[in-house]
Nucleic acid binder design. Structure first.
Lengths: 349, 349
DNA sequence: CTGAAAGCGCTAACAA
DNA sequence: TTGTTAGCGCTTTCAG
């Protein structure tokens, strides 16, 4: 059923039908109602393409996600979707599976399909490609970058600060030798966390030995393998395993989960032999045994702020050319049992 | 830049440009190359809407997901995306947050946007609405239904069989009183699992007391609360807590996680006091302490089969009207420590 | 308040 | 091999 048929059925011109669809106030109430009735009856919806051809906007935003297995990203996505729905927009999620090639492909598709705006989460795009997108003149916001991208609107988390707090806390808990398991790219925040880690040591006048820094895949398996390696490296012949290692700080909770598993598998206990701290406050982190001390990131909020930023851009032409906005959110310590703190263990959830 | 401008630049008609885009073999090599060069130079891409208006297909499939927090759904989605990508299709994921109203809305949007096919995961749609979609004549497949929907193409898992195996196994392990925590809708499979549970009891000539069946929200918190309630109900005054309960079977791993937490919080141990079994083989299930015995569902495979089914429907008009196909996949037991089995605990992952 | 007609960008049948 | 032109379904300007 198309607009012409509706017009015929109503005995009016297509223009009038189009009007009741787009500017009903310009149609005589009687005709309007007559036409509306037929529209309802026939369950007529204007052809998407024809409409797009005229309006060139789609009430759709695109969302590119590094991968879908991590619940953190999904929480951000939820925040975005919530805002989008309120604005009457539909969100298309594209899963790039951490493949930059795929990310570019999806972005191209989204632009082709004329989405009204794009949100990139933890994007691994090069500056060059970024500026190409900018040339396409489509509203875009970045979520979760820590490398400064002054030219783009973005929502980021102050991970350095989070890391500083956590490492300082571990030291406070009496842990002296603190290793760090760094997840590999594209999560840019990892390097920021590492910086925070180093900063604390420097501030305390301590050395940071490269032995204590282990780069691993950013998932459970990566954490497991990395931890096993570190334990092996730290075990002096004849000595007790891991007697040169008091605590381990992982740049994601997933890595921490794997690390905990490895520690237990090595016959060591947490936090007595090795304390563990994560980053992210994954849903599962307080179901681990022991419950995982971690740095909470405000994922959902990142999504909400990011989406609002995007809709500002979409709604107000002027903001598009103005200076990009940067929103920085703070992390929050979640002290639980795995870090071996004596006083604050009661403070859960 | 539009086709007309390209045509002008090349000194040809729009038809010729259109031809090099769609039927290059019908264009003289020389002209073709000349035009192609300009197309590349100008980074011209045909207008999506104009093209859609003519072709009425979009190389896009829509995917409706109950919610995005559960990694199981995401695994199915990954399987689907993989197949879609190979076919040159792009997948749009819509997150319905377990709200049937939202599901209908999204489906409407997908149809409006002329996706070439739709995959519904664990849909909560009424038969009525389903048949409305059927009327729209758009290829559709259902993934993860267990209620028989003979009229629709679908991929399901034989959960009853999985449940039967698991409950039988628990009995074999010497557990006598086995409670079940059932997640609430829309996961239809829950009722199938419950049936399996009951069947085993009947087959063994045992009673199924309603006390042992607890309905809970299908998430970690639900599992926690449900387990707490059951423990309370089972604790006879003066008796040891839970002395009427040997094991608990949860219809999802998430519920099981919550239940484990509740058991520990009650000062009981797993599996000595209460054994636990889950359903799903969530990534985290072997990081729990103790590692969770569970029924593995072949999520990724479900996605792959579902997508293949959909593309069969899309590619072959004939299949659309033919008899719907039903693919049933089997579950697999993952016996770990939480169920208290003595012999097979070594068998991990 | 309503209708006729041009135009959005592209494809494909038909002519040349 | 290429060009001309009529749509695809809708919106909107301009007349009436």
């Amino acid at each position: 059923m198309n607009i012409k048929q509706i017009a015929e059925k109503a005995g009016v011109s297509v223009a009038t039908v189009s009007r009741v669809l787009n500017h009903p106030e310009n149609v005589a109430p009687a005709t309007r109602e007559k036409i509306q009735k037929i529209i309802d009856q026939e369950e007529y919806t204007p052809n998407w393409f024809a409409q797009g051809l005229n309006f060139n906007r789609t009430k759709t935003i695109g969302l590119v996600i590094p991968h879908t297995i991590s619940s953190s990203y999904m929480e951000i996505a939820n925040g975005i979707e919530e805002v989008a729905r309120q604005k009457g927009y539909i969100t298309f999620m594209c899963n790039m599976e951490k493949d930059p090639q795929m990310e570019r492909e999806y972005i191209g598709q989204l632009i082709t399909r004329k989405v009204d705006g794009i949100i990139l989460m933890y994007s691994s795009l090069t500056e060059e490609y970024m500026s190409w997108i900018k040339g396409e003149n489509i509203p875009m916001v970045l979520i979760g970058e820590n490398v400064a991208r002054p030219d783009y609107n973005s929502v980021i988390v102050d991970c350095r600060d989070g890391a500083v707090q956590m490492v300082a806390h571990l030291i406070e808990c009496g842990h002296d030798s603190i290793g760090i398991l760094c997840g590999r790219d594209p999560e840019q925040e990892v390097s920021t966390i590492l910086q925070g880690y180093k900063n604390v040591f420097k501030a305390n006048g301590k050395e940071v030995s490269p032995k204590y820094i282990q780069h691993v895949d950013n998932n459970i398996e990566g954490g497991y393998i990395g931890m096993k390696k570190m334990i092996a490296a730290m075990t002096s012949p004849g000595g007790k395993p891991a007697d040169q290692l008091d605590a381990i700080f992982a740049t994601s909770d997933e890595i921490a989960f794997g690390a905990m598993d490895a520690i237990k598998d090595s016959g060591l206990s947490i936090p007595e032999d090795i304390a563990v701290a994560g980053f992210g406050n994954n849903k599962m982190s307080n179901l681990m045994e022991p419950k995982l001390t971690t740095v909470e990131q405000p994922f959902r909020l990142m999504g909400i702020y990011g989406a609002r930023l995007l809709f500002d851009l979409i709604d107000e032409e002027s903001k598009r050319t103005g200076r990009p906005e940067h929103i920085t959110l703070k992390t929050k310590m979640r002290i639980r049992k795995s870090c071996g703190h004596k006083d604050r263990i009661g403070e859960m959830f």
